[in-house]
Design a protein around this nucleic acid. Structure first.
Lengths: 205, 205, 205, 205
DNA sequence: AATGAATGAGGTTTCATTCAT
DNA sequence: TATGAATGAAACCTCATTCAT
């Protein structure tokens, strides 16, 4: 009994991963997923309730881990950096980096789907939330002290938002193009170095 | 009659632009485009062979301009920077920047569709091509002289590729989130500043 | 323009009426309706949003008329019969009868679908509501005065409910089996005669 | 082995009874029947050729008993009532009643399925056949003597048909709404009383 | 005898595209 | 030239039935 179940379920998941990666959630075809998995479309529904359920089973673990991780970063950051302004942001980000890379190394494709290809699913607004979280952290770097509401403030906010977005996208790109863990770490390192250098140079103006 | 034809054709193109912008290529509805253009669905097919053809007529000019522009940058770069190494890369990129922003200001929507909303069309792989072109340019910054094939070379290639990708994505993000031309220019400026600072600091190591 | 629309819409409505009549709402097949109408399934959706919408367009007018009519009966009954107990129930029901027959003559099939074949649609609970309304009226015949809550009361309630149900079904059967208006009127007359005789004889016990 | 087989077969039949009762023939799910029976879907097909066969094995005995019973009533009626016109129809119907209720008490669920929930199966037209049989019996009450073919005859035929239908539906309604055998008997008693009173009053005109 | 994974035909619905008018 | 009704293929999904185990 159940002489094939796990094998088939895995082949469906793998096929779905490939199809979602290629066409995004709403343009992915259950028929194509079935073809890729070597089964008939109806059989998918023995393993997953529907398209959204299949997507969720693939993406949710990564989503949860990622959210939890970012929250930890935020809390840690709020505690250690903002109160006593001793930590160098460069050092702080460097510490963060290794954990990020670890998570991405585990779930490269899933994260890219979550962040860039989930339009039409319940995860659609996740990317903006994540970028806003990242922006929140960067904001504290640019405006350490008080909450000014003047023009400068708006510009800083835009800047933080933009840099947060590019940072997230940068990591996505690195992970899309490279499999080797050490290369990934090295490139993220470089990316952070660029960002930190730029941010520091901007703060010093 | 010819006059009427052009008017209708333009209204279709304008409607299509709006619809592709809102829903992306494959989720755009020909019926909705007809509605927006104030005509009937069947009539679209007197002006355009099919959905893909309509998309192409809209996007191709921008695509071509963008490619041509990047080629010019590449050629200019090859001539002015690589041979006699006098120009400051920061100055060079700053010169580039204003042209980029100009192009985006002209064809903001088309470029955003081309880069982010062309999934399902023949332009789907364009973004990657563009990033590779940009990477080629950046390569010349990092490896000014000869074509070494050693390990250091590979690392520089990866770095250039990654930075090119994040740069392109960064510009996309800026254009997605902001309409005002001056804000766009300012943010692109900041983005370049960060990149240049990072790149210079890296070159100086 | 619109050179066929009404004709097709009517053929769909007629086909749907036949299909819903034969198999009920949830077992009716849109494909079969299309076949009966001599069109393709997709074309139905140019005329009706979905299956429920098609059903509603067919059934709602009858439903509304029927509900309104029954409410009028109920109000008229509450006013004329319960307060001053002068009207003979036989006379009252006879007055009611002609109106019922008129409505049924107009929308024979639709009413039968509404009452007996709407399972799965939003009209599913209508029949029970109607029977309860009819039972409410009959209750007033059996228990003219006060609201007793004893055993006799429960029996009267069951009896009223049962007779209301059979009355409704009886009218449905008459209309299913006969087309001629005069025959219908005559049979409903007989049915009411039987009911009234029985009810009166029961009250006299 | 044979013992086990019967046990399984019975559990399937019991499960099917419950499922058909809840959802009707065509909306009943073979998978759900298997679940209720504590076996797997495929195994049902070792005991029953298909869904229709399972339905038939469940319903046919009751159908046959019911038909046979009605035939006996008819024959008994033809012998005792029509030839020597001594028996009071009220007494005769009262005698009939207790047998009807007995049969319903034995096979309440099966009869309700047969009469009201067989849409989509081969038993779908049974209810009409039953009503026509009942109408045939009632005809003998209204037209004791000869087979006139005049207008009066047609009216009597229609009347008998209508009253047979309402009687059957009335019993169905009673059985749908009540579980307790004594309440069922009592309501059927009342229903017959109404019918008899009406029929007698009509005959006396 | 029993399992339950798999199939395949069918369900409702959408939509780019065609074509008679 | 323009209409918009109609088509047909595809979408997601369900389920009675089959069959390798």
């Amino acid at each position: 009994m159940q002489y094939l179940k796990d094998e088939v379920k895995n082949s469906i998941l793998q096929a779905a991963l490939s199809e979602f990666m290629r066409h995004g959630y709403s343009n992915a075809s259950m028929r194509q997923i079935a073809n890729l998995a070597g089964i008939t479309p109806g059989n998918i529904y023995r393993y997953f309730k529907n398209k959204e359920d299949l997507f969720q089973e693939l993406i949710h673990p990564v989503y949860e881990k990622f959210i939890q991780y970012l929250m930890e970063i935020k809390d840690d950051f709020d505690d250690s950096y903002c109160v006593i302004n001793t930590t160098n942001p460069l050092d702080y980000l460097r510490k963060v980096e290794s954990t990020i890379v670890e998570l991405f190394k585990e779930s490269n494709v899933e994260l890219r789907i979550l962040l860039n290809l989930s339009s039409g699913s319940s995860y659609e607004p996740v990317k903006q939330e994540l970028i806003q979280l990242a922006a929140h952290i960067l904001m504290k770097v640019f405006i350490p002290g008080e909450d000014q509401q003047d023009q400068a403030m708006i510009e800083e906010r835009n800047l933080a938002h933009m840099l947060a977005g590019t940072l997230i996208e940068g990591v996505c790109i690195i992970l899309r193009d490279h499999e080797d863990g050490e290369t990934v770490r090295q490139l993220v390192d470089e990316l952070l170095r660029v960002y930190c250098a730029g941010i520091i140079s901007r703060l010093n103006i």
